[in-house]
C-alpha cells in the first residue's frame, strides 16, 4: 500500500471514529432530553415521590441535591482556597509538600464508593450522625476537595508575575498581596472551576448511598423547628438526592412508573450539568472582560 493511499484510508477511519463518537454522544444526550422533557412538568419537580403507585414527583430529591451542593461547597471552598494558596505561594520544597501533593493525587483518584465507605465509617457511624446531609456533605467534600485545590492553584498560576511584583514593591505584605491582589485576579478562574466542580458534585451518587442515605423524610417547608427531621434545612436529617433516586427507583424501586421518573430525573440532572457548564463559560469570560476591559 503506498503512502498516499494509507493516508487516505487512515483519514477516513479516523474521521469515521470521530463521527461515531459524536453520534453516540449526541444520541445519548438527545435520548435523555427527548424522553425526559415529556415527563417534566411543575407537578413532577415539586411533588414528593410515591412509594408504591405511579404519579410521584422528585421535589424533595431536587431540593436535597441543591442543598447538599451548597453545604458541600461551603465546606470545600474555603479549604480548597486555603490549600491552593499554600501550595502555590508558600509551600517549600520538602517532604511535607510532597506528601500533600501525593495526597491530592490519591484523593482525586479514589473511587467515589470508597469515599462513601470512609464517610460511612467516620461521619455516619463514628460521630453518630447517622445517614444525614452533613455526613453526605463531608463525604462529597473529600471527593471534591482535591479538584478545588487544583482549580485554585491553576487560577493563581495565571495571575501575571508583574501584579505580584507591583504589590510587593509598594511594601505590601505577602499575605495582603495574596488576599488583595492575587486572589481578586484569580477569581474568574476559581469561579469558573468551582461552577464546573459543582456539576460534578450535583450528579454524584455512589459516595452518597451510605452517607446521606437512600431515603428522605417528608419535608415540611412551613416548619420552624430546624431540629425536626421534616425541616428542609436540618443538616442532620437523611436526604436522598436526585442522582441517588435514579439509581434507587431502577434497582430497588417498587413504583410502576420507575422508567418515567428516572427519565425525568435524568433529564433534569443532564440539564443541570449543561447549565453549570454554560454558566461557567459565560461567567468566566464576562468577569475576565470586566477586569481587563479597554472600554
Amino acid at each position: 500500500m503506498n503512502a498516499k493511499l494509507a493516508n487516505r484510508v487512515a483519514t477516513i477511519i479516523i474521521t469515521s471514529f470521530a463521527y461515531l463518537i459524536i453520534l453516540i454522544l449526541a444520541g445519548l444526550l438527545g435520548y435523555i432530553l427527548y424522553n425526559g422533557l415529556s415527563v417534566i412538568d411543575w407537578d413532577f419537580v415539586t411533588s414528593p415521590p410515591e412509594s408504591l403507585s405511579a404519579g410521584g414527583g422528585i421535589g424533595p430529591q431536587l431540593f436535597n441535591s441543591f442543598y447538599l451542593l451548597i453545604l458541600t461547597m461551603l465546606i470545600t471552598t474555603p479549604l480548597g482556597l486555603g490549600a491552593g494558596i499554600y501550595l502555590s505561594q508558600y509551600a517549600p520544597k520538602n517532604k511535607l509538600t510532597n506528601g500533600i501533593r501525593t495526597s491530592i493525587e490519591v484523593l482525586s483518584s479514589l473511587p467515589s464508593i470508597v469515599v462513601g465507605l470512609f464517610g460511612l465509617l467516620i461521619f455516619v457511624t463514628y460521630t453518630g450522625w447517622g445517614y444525614s446531609l452533613i455526613s453526605g456533605a463531608l463525604a462529597l467534600a473529600v471527593f471534591n476537595l482535591p479538584l478545588m485545590v487544583r482549580i485554585t492553584e491553576e487560577a493563581i498560576e495565571t495571575v501575571p508575575k508583574e501584579q505580584i511584583e507591583a504589590s510587593l514593591a509598594l511594601g505590601i505584605s505577602k499575605w495582603k498581596t495574596i488576599t488583595h491582589v492575587i486572589l481578586p485576579a484569580a477569581i474568574p478562574g476559581i469561579l469558573t472551576g468551582t461552577i464546573l466542580a459543582s456539576g460534578r458534585v450535583f450528579g454524584e451518587a455512589a459516595a452518597l448511598l451510605f452517607t446521606a442515605g437512600m431515603s428522605s423524610p417528608a419535608l415540611d417547608f412551613t416548619s420552624m423547628d430546624i431540629t425536626s427531621s421534616s425541616h428542609p434545612l436540618n443538616p442532620f436529617r437523611p436526604a436522598e438526592t436526585l442522582a441517588v433516586h435514579i439509581w434507587k427507583v431502577n434497582t430497588e424501586g417498587l413504583i410502576p412508573d420507575a422508567r418515567e421518573v428516572a427519565d425525568g430525573a435524568s433529564a433534569i440532572l443532564v440539564l443541570s450539568v449543561l447549565v453549570f457548564n454554560i454558566t461557567a463559560r459565560w461567567f468566566g469570560s464576562w468577569i475576565y472582560r470586566r477586569i481587563t476591559s479597554h472600554s
Binding site: P160, E162, Q163, E165, A166, S167, A169, V181, P184, A185, I291, T292
Partner: peptide, 8 residues
Amino acid sequence: FQKPNPFY
C-alpha cells in the same frame, strides 16, 4: 517596572 502593571 518595564511593563506597565496596574492592578486589576
